[in-house]
Write a protein that binds this DNA or RNA. Structure first.
Lengths: 334, 334
DNA sequence: TATTTTTGTGAAAACGATTGCATAAATATT
DNA sequence: AATATTTATGCAATCGTTTTCACAAAAATA
């Protein structure tokens, strides 16, 4: 049953013309006689001719595919972001190749190299937790304009970036705990300080404390790696040693791990110790004890990142500029 | 900074030989002199030569990519399955192109056609909720051996398939409710009957009832569409009219929607009315009231499906056979 | 009617790789 | 020394398109 696709040559032979004529007819070239055109177009439709995109790619040096590197796919934030990326890219005729760095720099480097070899037209990337510099990424990209960083972005340098307003989101969450709940001793559990999101959210947290005249207690701030056990231990230790009046956990996966430990301390969770997480879990409102969330516009971030990338790929302009988009987070505190 | 990749021709020119020699040297052909080989290989490494996969694809009529069509990416089961697919495929040098049908037959047809046009070497697909026949899928595939169905598979016909043991999973869950909890009035809320998973899980549910000498009450069995509101209404109605002693919801997304309505009926959920869902939510154990789950081996299903597909693509054998793999589910009832 | 212009078409090169075939040079065999 | 064989390399075709160039035939102009 192996079906062999129809080629230009097949059509040319069947119609007794040259491939050039057929090609031009299908591309509606002005040079081709209307009758010939109609003949070709009708026949092509009849045999369900579809141009071989691989041949086109070779000719045009364009793969019509964009690469995506994220730490994990099975993560609410990233799967929703990928959703947005797919929608935007597919709508523009691109397809999307996804790779996972699993928070490893080596894997991330491999991914980027593999994608480059695959002739992607551009790259969307959210950095791994171990990444501190982006030489390996820029080295394999066609140009600095064919890379868009999202969520976890490099600090310095001119690049396309799409991020959530992490500072503001963290500020508002913290401010709310202080203002509405009258809480001052808020633990902040966060990801490695190498990540942009870590620093920005921490700054938001600190700013809210300071604005409300509360001294920052460094012992309430904990950096945690990506092992679930680290999260459990950290929460248990915080509870034992510091008795925080609220928890604010700064990233998606981390929040769930911390929550797990938190929810086991019944004397804590059953009292009104609010638990806030920067997370995109769609079912957070079903948790009990309650989990308050700072929600990132994941889908929109993905969609915007893809939009910028495609614009940049397709722009013929010599003089380009880097775009930076910051999207608002939303408190889900009901 | 636009970097142009090094080609065979570039190397040939630089080294004053023909592209054929360079190609053969890099492919370690026995015909090439060892000195020449070394010269070429060293130079290639120096300039970071990487063969253009698009040119290779064109030559070999092989894209080294496989297509995946699922109803939704942002769904625990599917994102974990995709995880398995990616791992297996990437390990074998393939990349993966993902499309979402959003439970629509039209979208599914578009996706399959688009992927076919993209020259994919094979297809992994989990059918949309509206799909009742697979003509549109087989029409666009290279051969029936280059398609693997997983999770939601067509009933009849010889095809590659990877599924969970839905019957057994549903049977065990139901049997447990009866045996361990002494419950007889169990509501079964499920997806459209066109889906294989719906029918198999329903059969498991019924078989467990019958084995325990409980008559099947058709009014306790509800088919629900994909709108969240349908799920809410169904649960509310069931509670109002039938007062079930337990809920068993047969699919991932559906279970969460039903649970949402269920958890609002405090007089219900606070009593010991068990809620069971066929779901892969990683955080189900954090829910309160408790949610019991029948967990599918999503990662393994994806991995196996990709494995079968790639074996089938790469097998040179003329005589092939269809593979059917059934993996065990796991009760998370602690 | 002779010349120019327009119109429509085909041959061939290009994209980057592989590979069957031809062939020159080096070596082995008689 | 003459022939046969091996070794190492290059030429050219191929995969499916697009596109430049060339060039007939037809139409328009002189």
């Amino acid at each position: 049953m192996e079906i062999k696709p129809v080629t230009l040559k097949d059509i040319a032979k069947a119609l007794g013309m040259s491939t050039s004529t057929v090609s031009r007819a299908l591309n509606d070239s002005y040079e081709i006689n209307e009758n010939t055109k109609k003949l070709v177009v009708d026949y092509a439709k009849k045999v369900d001719y579809r141009p071989n995109p691989i041949a086109l790619s070779l000719k045009e040096n364009k793969s019509w595919s964009i690469g995506v590197v994220v730490p994990e796919v099975a993560n609410n934030f990233f799967s929703m972001a990928i959703n947005g990326i797919e929608d935007e890219a597919n709508g523009c005729g691109y397809h999307v190749v996804i790779c996972q760095s699993h928070e490893s720099l080596e894997k991330e480097t491999q991914n980027v190299k593999h994608l480059a070899t695959r002739q992607i037209d551009g790259l969307l990337i959210s950095l791994s937790g171990k990444t501190t510099d982006i030489g390996h990424i820029m080295h394999y990209s066609r140009s600095p304009y064919s890379v868009v960083f999202f969520d976890r972005v490099p600090e310095a340098g001119n690049y396309h970036k799409v991020v959530a307003d992490n500072f503001k989101g963290a500020f508002e969450a913290t401010d709310y705990l202080i203002k509405a709940k009258g809480i001052t001793k808020i633990a902040h559990v966060t990801s490695p300080p190498s990540l942009s999101i870590t620093r920005e959210r921490l700054e938001g947290y600190k700013a809210a404390l300071e604005k409300n005249g509360i001294a920052v207690d460094e012992e309430l701030i904990k950096y945690v790696g990506f092992e679930p056990q680290d999260a459990y231990d950290t929460v248990n230790k915080l509870i034992a040693e510091k008795h925080p009046e609220a928890f604010f956990v700064a990233s998606d996966r981390l929040a769930l791990n911390c929550y797990e430990a938190f929810s086991k301390h019944l004397h804590y969770s059953e009292k009104t110790v609010p638990f806030v997480g920067f997370t995109n879990l769609s079912v957070s409102h079903l948790f009990n004890p309650k989990i308050f969330t700072v929600v990132q516009p994941a889908y929109e971030m993905g969609r915007n990142a893809a939009r910028i990338l495609i614009d940049s790929i397709e722009s013929k302009k010599k003089v380009k500029e880097f775009e930076m988009i910051t999207l608002e987070t939303k408190l889900k505190f009901e």
